[in-house]
Design a protein around this nucleic acid. Structure first.
Lengths: 350, 350
DNA sequence: TTGTATGCGTTATCAT
DNA sequence: ATGATAACGCATACAA
């Protein structure tokens, strides 16, 4: 490979001092060093373009200053925003951020965790909610426990099977509030397009939706609950399925379990020639940046995603410094009414 | 901190063999080892839940298996897509991906590079184009050279002042092609909303735009060239400025230097009550996923961003394996006509 | 085929 | 205040 970089030994030699002294200067140790020694070391380091070897440092210190964020897909704006928040705080505190795309596959998640354990990552942020694959929870728990015993910090930013410090998005309340909002607009037949069945967050939102209906004294119509996949394709497919429904059974509003799905719904409705919100109301969950960009702008449930990332990283740091905060916090969310929803008006039969 | 993890020494002891033998088994060395020894080591490792220390390994091997992607902002879909592609290939090849948000600040870029040097990152992907800050190029060059001398691989995915292997998005041709396309539609007054002046890519697109006009024998009207910032706000602001223009000087088409800007333009026009594409045509550059989501869907220049990331990482690997490929490749782009552009029709004066 | 010993670059411990 | 040295965990050169 390339030529060796200068090491602390080279610096010490050039400065005419011991390695120990050089180290004390270069690592900003609190240990007393004479001004003369200090300046000699600093100058030698500068002249040689000394770059401390963080791998060696980490090995020695049992502390890597590496943290990781586990996401389903970093190109998904939901995770991208969280990652941004995590990275922001991490960088401020001298940590490097490793991004891991699990593609929502248990196998990949475990694979990554093992690598992170190997690299002695100081912490891991689970950005997405837990996977419901058979046997996954157990295996996940095993490695997470091992990491924690080693001193690594873990935090989840969603409902999770993991028993670790968490910041939970209040999915159930958010979905309930949104459903109530639609009910107040006069809608009675409200379709719900869910997410992957192995995603806890998706289930919580479904629960919230049903709870609101029941509270309002309405029956839950299972023909109005459709499968989705948290992506646009799922939304489009669901619309095609809704179209198959006989006229009187069709919904007057569609609640998509996340914004991406809602975008797919909007696209699907558009190609069907159904106008939003005149013919049908639509809403999502998440409030991605593009929710405000689409025309009409999307009514959705706002989650402060970047802040969620920031708080998550801070919680990680707190664990690392044994400043143990409350183990699990709930992140409140709010309904943001925009232009894709409007008061229900009965179809004109003529 | 937490309790010590088991090391290779523990494994060796438990297996009743030397550390060297254990290492040979656990690192999959090509060195011959008897079947008996191998299985003893493997079993001991399993029983102890041995996790190899990658920091030690990296220190020893002078090779970290860490790579980094330098982006302006990982929450920007442009960079998010690239990062995804990089991470995909990196992970396939056993590398961990560090994400660095430079916020397009030279200072942050340098700061990150120093950290990456400290961690002995095996490679760095510069996803964005070079910054034009005074003195930045020189300082950047210095540290990049040091990294390369060390054996690290570098690749840029955009026009860059750095003299390193690169995959360049053909910004000039793309912008020229798009401008020609608008000209063919009959537009003559085409506004151009640029990007940050210190971004080479933005300048290349402006060059392409002007080249097409000149080729068509048209004058470049500088009142139609507006400043932008590669974000939605810039697009909205530019629209407000265009509105100030007296009627006859207004453009019939707006070419935004990137998609984000175009989204801002669409939003700005919408709030002004100008219809797209009936009253005015709009197009962007980049073809982000959401270009197909907005209504009407955005005419833009397609860049295969995820592929760009993948190719970039492959180019990095090629360098690492001294399979030196062509130093700089050009990534072709294509105009994708969608619904925000249409044939120019002169305003009806009545 | 196996084992011993050394070095990768740092920092902390212990003397001085 | 300074210096010599062990140890972090691993992989290799060399010896057996």
């Amino acid at each position: 490979m390339g030529k060796q970089l200068v090491s602390i030994v080279d610096v010490a030699r050039r400065a005419g001092v011991s390695v120990a002294s050089a180290s004390r200067v270069l690592s900003n140790a609190s240990y007393p060093v004479s001004e003369e020694t200090r300046s000699k070391v600093l100058q030698a380091a500068q002249e040689l373009h000394y770059a401390p070897n963080s791998l060696a440092r980490s090995l020695r210190a049992q502390r890597s200053n590496l943290i990781a964020v586990l996401v389903g897909d970093n190109a998904d704006p939901y995770f991208a925003e969280i990652t941004r928040g995590v990275e922001e705080v991490a960088n401020d505190c001298g940590y490097l951020t490793i991004v891991c795309n699990t593609e929502r596959k248990g196998e990949r998640e475990l694979h990554y965790l093992q690598m992170l354990q190997d690299y002695r990552a100081d912490g891991v942020v689970f950005a997405g909610s837990g996977l419901n694959e058979p046997g996954h929870t157990e295996r996940l728990n095993t490695i997470v426990q091992t990491m924690r015993e080693r001193g690594a910090a873990i935090v989840t930013l969603a409902q999770h099977t993991l028993q670790v410090p968490a910041i939970q998005v209040d999915n159930a309340s958010g979905a309930r509030a949104m459903t109530r909002y639609l009910l107040e607009l006069g809608h009675r037949r409200i379709a719900f397009i869910g997410g992957p069945s192995n995603l806890i967050a998706a289930n919580m939102r479904l629960q919230g939706y049903m709870a609101a209906l029941i509270e309002a004294g309405l029956d839950v119509d299972h023909t109005l609950i459709l499968a989705g996949s948290f992506d646009r394709e799922g939304g489009e497919q669901a619309v095609r399925n809704l179209e198959q429904l006989p006229e009187p059974q069709r919904p007057s509003a569609i609640f998509a379990a996340n914004d991406e799905t809602a975008f797919g719904v909007l696209r699907g409705l558009n190609s069907l020639g159904w106008r939003v919100p005149e013919d049908i109301s639509v809403c999502g969950f998440g409030d991605l940046p593009m929710a405000q960009v689409v025309v009409p702008s999307l009514t959705t449930v706002h989650i402060g995603l970047r802040d969620l990332g920031r708080s998550g990283m801070r919680k990680l740091l707190a664990q690392l410094q044994h400043d143990d905060t409350a183990d699990t916090e709930l992140l409140p969310v709010q309904v943001v009414p925009r232009a894709t929803t409007q008061t229900y008006s009965p179809p004109i039969t003529g």
